[in-house]
Nucleic acid binder design. Structure first.
Length: 585
DNA sequence: TTGCCTTTGAAGTGC
DNA sequence: GCACTTCAAAGGCAA
């Protein structure tokens, strides 16, 4: 993937990405996105209706009633979107986005980035961290855009609730993150709230400069530690020190940016602190002087990283994260375990995407039910371009990397059983009929044969689009290329003839279930695979909900997708039956 | 109050 | 190595 190559062609790649980002079609995309959202919603609802049609004769009028918000809102959304898009473009043309500073993050989704982490009214620490860590400069335009865009008509754009948010900024800084769910979120709300929360008007991100502007006076001042967002902030007590994996964020004078449990880190990670990708990130683009210095070892915000959900942290301000619990007696060990912070799994690519896009989807439709929203998001995920998905895969990879550095001993296993065991009822032993009856009303029967053939390409769009290992440049030589990021690039089959070296990546071991052995897609994804191994594309790992399949078929594929669909159509021609069988399940 | 729903992906377990 | 399970987020909803 040239655009991800960290090596030469940096600027070229950057320009390419810039073009991509600035694509004139962006607005159309946004518009069609709204339309798509409506369609998604319709799909979901109709599938819901279908599911329940046996026990309810939902009329069209009912559907109409349940339909999301009035078109008038959409129109205003469109105008607002255009306004922002135009503003953003102007900013970009102004030179802010001339080139990505980090080839691995060429997707300057500043506006989008604002969304996700605002889904609950607050920019999550991780989001801020991503902004800080990964786009330390790139978010400047975003901020500027926000400011510039908002400034002309603040009264129009900032709702009273958002103003309330502004007033409640102190809560953020006092580590009380309000959870404000915008029932009917204005499309601009995410940006506004984002700004309110983190980048208040006239307040550039703290990381941009050692000093920030006082929100009240506008006078530059030294950032208060609480305004700086560590990535995995841990409570200071009993903590060692860890150089941040992104070196440019690490204070230069040995000040620990990311303290960590003593047990968690036995030594600093100079090697881990900067791998190839990170160094490319750091390189000449981000000189350390932009990094705010922290003058004490305490972490800055006290806001626990989302990965840490711990009563211990809440209850023990001194944050005795005691991994040493295992050295104590069984009784105390149990106690300690109870106190032990619950370190959450790092978010995967889709989760990151969900966080980012949820608010958007919620804003675009009146759906509040996460299950339905997630269905939409799932389909949108499939419809994402390879590059877009690659961004999230890379993001997730970084997150995992950082997570593993911060919690070396942590295992996903640690969280097993932390939740109440999910009621698996009869899923495993249910017959396919049971499954379909219990979960989704089969939609395949309504699909034209051709679409059924196409469906895998469409419904497994992320496979089509899923990134290969984001890039060799990004993949840290120090960090073994994780298999999770080794996504196939089926499109390369047709559009990137020189990419067949990615095919071995197709051999990513299936992580799960059902459809692997008979998956038509799996074979079609590696027609020329050097591995020759029949692997299951991740997206085929579980039966595709038929409603989703149906809906995704109805969703107009992007040009990228269309090309992929075309090629895959041909590929699937040889084995359409197994697909149909799969779908029919 | 608690768990389910729903999505994808990562990682763990068991055979 | 494969199949399967669990968890991560989210918030409405049902029990």
């Amino acid at each position: 993937m040239p655009q991800l190559n960290g090596g030469g062609g940096d600027e070229l790649g950057a320009n390419d990405e810039l073009i991509s980002f600035k694509d004139e079609g962006e607005q159309e995309e946004k518009i069609s996105e709204n339309v798509s959202a409506e369609r998604d919603l319709d799909d979901v609802k109709s599938s819901l209706v279908n599911e329940s049609e046996n026990n309810s004769s939902s009329s069209d009028s009912e559907q109409t009633e349940r339909r999301p918000q009035p078109r008038a809102d959409l129109e205003s959304y469109e105008k607002a979107r255009e306004y922002f898009t135009e503003a953003l473009r102007r900013q970009q043309d102004g030179g802010f986005f001339k080139s990505p500073h980090y080839p691995g993050y060429p997707f300057l989704m500043i506006p989008d980035l604002t969304n996700p982490y605002l889904s609950s009214g607050a920019l999550s620490p991780s989001a801020r961290t991503y902004l800080q860590m990964k786009w330390p400069l790139l978010d400047v335009p975003g901020t500027a855009v926000l400011r510039d865009s908002r400034s002309p008509t603040p009264g129009q754009l900032v709702s009273g609730r958002d103003l309330d948010l502004t007033r409640s900024r102190s809560f953020f800084q006092s580590n009380k993150v309000p959870v404000v769910q915008h029932a009917h979120m204005h499309p601009l709300t995410p940006l506004i709230t984002y700004s309110n929360e983190h980048f208040s008007p006239g307040t550039p991100p703290a990381h941009l400069s050692p000093e920030i502007l006082d929100p009240k006076t506008g006078i530059p001042r030294t950032p208060h530690p609480s305004e700086l967002s560590p990535y995995y902030p841990l409570s200071p007590g009993a903590m060692g020190q860890i150089p941040h994996p992104l070196g440019w964020l690490v204070p230069q004078q040995g000040q620990p940016m990311y303290p960590i449990t003593a047990g968690g880190f036995r030594h600093p990670y100079p090697a881990l602190a900067m791998n190839a990708s990170m160094s490319s990130l750091v390189s000449s683009h981000f000189s350390p002087h932009i990094v705010p210095h922290h003058h004490h070892g305490l972490h800055q915000t006290g806001i626990p990283h989302p990965a840490i959900v711990s009563a211990a942290i809440k209850q023990e301000p001194n944050g005795e994260l005691s991994p040493a619990a295992n050295t104590k007696s069984p009784v105390s060990t149990k106690k300690e375990e109870d106190k032990k912070p619950h370190i959450k799994k790092p978010l995967n690519a889709f989760m990151l995407y969900m966080k980012e896009m949820r608010a958007k989807v919620v804003a675009e439709c009146t759906l509040k039910e996460s299950a339905a929203i997630n269905q939409i998001l799932g389909r949108r995920w499939h419809s994402l371009s390879r590059e877009e998905q690659a961004k999230y895969y890379e993001l997730a990879r970084k997150e995992r990397q950082l997570h593993s550095q911060l919690y070396p001993g942590w295992s996903a296993r640690d969280n097993y059983g932390k939740r109440k065991k999910r009621k698996r009822d009869n899923k495993t032993d249910s017959t396919p009929e049971d499954f379909s009856a219990r979960n989704k009303k089969p939609c395949v029967q309504y699909l034209p044969q051709e679409k059924m053939i196409d469906s895998p390409a469409s419904s497994h769009g992320s496979m089509l689009d899923s990134p290969a290992t984001p890039s060799a440049a990004l993949a840290s030589p120090a960090a073994p290329a994780p298999t999770h990021s080794e996504q196939a690039q089926p499109l390369s089959l047709t559009t990137k003839p020189d990419r067949h070296h990615h095919f071995p990546l197709l051999s990513k071991p299936s992580s799960s279930s059902s459809s692997s052995s008979s998956s038509a897609s799996s074979s079609s994804y590696q027609p020329t695979s050097a591995s020759g191994r029949q692997s299951t594309p991740p997206l085929l790992s579980r039966p595709l909900p038929l409603a989703s399949l149906h809906a995704s078929l109805l969703s107009p594929p992007s040009p990228f997708h269309q090309a992929a669909l075309h090629s895959h159509h041909a590929l699937f021609q040889s084995q359409p039956l197994s697909l149909v069988t799969k779908s029919a399940d």
